[in-house]
Design a protein around this nucleic acid. Structure first.
Lengths: 219, 219
DNA sequence: CAAAAATAATAGTAATACTATCATGATTGA
DNA sequence: TCAATCATGATAGTATTACTATTATTTTTG
């Protein structure tokens, strides 16, 4: 059995997972963005890294911004897949929620079933760069194109468990999106501005914090 | 009485608050970034808007990135000032905390004492652009230069009240930085991706959500 | 094996993020 | 009041970026 994770077709001109050179773009692209930061990352540099040319990359992706959106969406696809696995065949909404919070805010375990090679570097990229993909003037257009459907459906699904547990809680979506976004933010802080957090790379406390919030708020 | 809010001197080459043209840069700069977004904002466009030249702006600010950092720091200075006002002469840590959460996560009231004209547009800018200032490869250098001292001191101060209220709570800084960052994020969602939140521009629920978290987590 | 498709190689463009130079106008202090 | 200083304006220039365009070459496929 092999798991193929498909990314929203509005995000590419030609599916990068359909060719060797496309796959290289993804793999090397993630690493290069992680090394250089998205601002200093260029298609020219990526082309050099994969022994190809700018023109070829432009045949796969409309521009640099789409490339970033593609990678972030890929990450969400992985998360959505993990969420599905983590909640399958479970009835108790408390357990469903707690497992979901683990997937959304915990660290991936390379030993777990179906671990995807790019997962760790992709997560790193999301922590560093996802804000730049979102906070642009084009966000409304992209939203119209369905780019954020997956993200919204993840929040909506997990918010359902919150509602089951506590039907009168007034902020279910807000609670989940807060914890999701915060997980990335706190991990950024833990590396660069450690005094803003109580988590650190040696002893990551992000999931524990998130589970505590959930428990206290819904009890 | 007039309040002068001073921004970290590492953030400018020549103090923009010391001249008419400098003040224009700030005022028009905020508006221009809000209209164009930081990516499309250039010193050339700003110069045209204030009937000046690129060269003059470069005599005040090292680059575009520093300009953004300057504006965000200015916002924090305002917040720090409001925090001080909101907690002065109050003994009860519960009330100190609740007032601080209002300052950090609520909406500014134009009718309040000492309201600063730029406060609303500056807040708008911070909601849209602050992530871009932080998530760069230069964050560690800037941190060394003390650019984030004010931000850290705000978190640290408010975390103190958390510790007073509940000395065994293990995540005081994390709790405060979570709610601070989240306030901006949720307001961005409420405009662009409303299904991710339960707040909206007509009935803003960000402060209520934040106060609820604080209350539930520390009770 | 020929046709089609994908990729490589190369060139070119407008805009950006600056740096540099010199002229001019305003301020100030002797 | 006049010269010196300083801030600003005007203008030019540069390397890089984010693309687009064209043509040649290689690879795939029926």
């Amino acid at each position: 059995m092999s798991i193929t994770i498909q990314v929203n077709a509005n995000l590419f001109l030609k599916d990068p997972k359909s060719s060797d050179i496309g796959l290289k773009m993804l793999k090397e692209g993630i690493d290069l963005i992680n090394v250089l930061g998205f601002e200093a990352f260029t298609f020219k540099k990526l082309a050099q890294n994969i022994q190809s040319t700018e023109a070829t990359i432009y045949r796969y992706f409309e521009n640099k911004h789409s490339f970033l959106l593609y990678l972030i969406n890929w990450y969400w696809e992985i998360i959505a897949y993990r969420l599905m696995l983590a909640t399958a065949n479970i009835e108790d909404p408390r357990l469903k929620l707690s497992n979901s919070i683990r997937v959304l805010t915990g660290l991936p375990d390379p030993a777990q079933f179906g671990f995807i090679a790019e997962e760790l570097s992709l997560k790193q990229l999301v922590i560093q760069e996802s804000g730049k993909a979102l906070h642009t003037k084009s966000v409304d257009l992209e939203n119209q194109d369905g780019i954020y459907l997956l993200y919204k459906s993840i929040v909506s699904t997990v918010a359902t468990y919150v509602k089951q547990l506590n039907p009168t809680f007034p902020y279910p979506e807000m609670l989940i999106s807060t914890l999701m976004e915060n997980a990335n933010q706190q991990r950024f802080f833990s590396v660069h501005l450690p005094r803003l957090t109580n988590s650190n790379p040696e002893k990551d406390a992000v999931e524990a914090f998130s589970q505590l919030i959930i428990q206290k708020v819904l009890e």
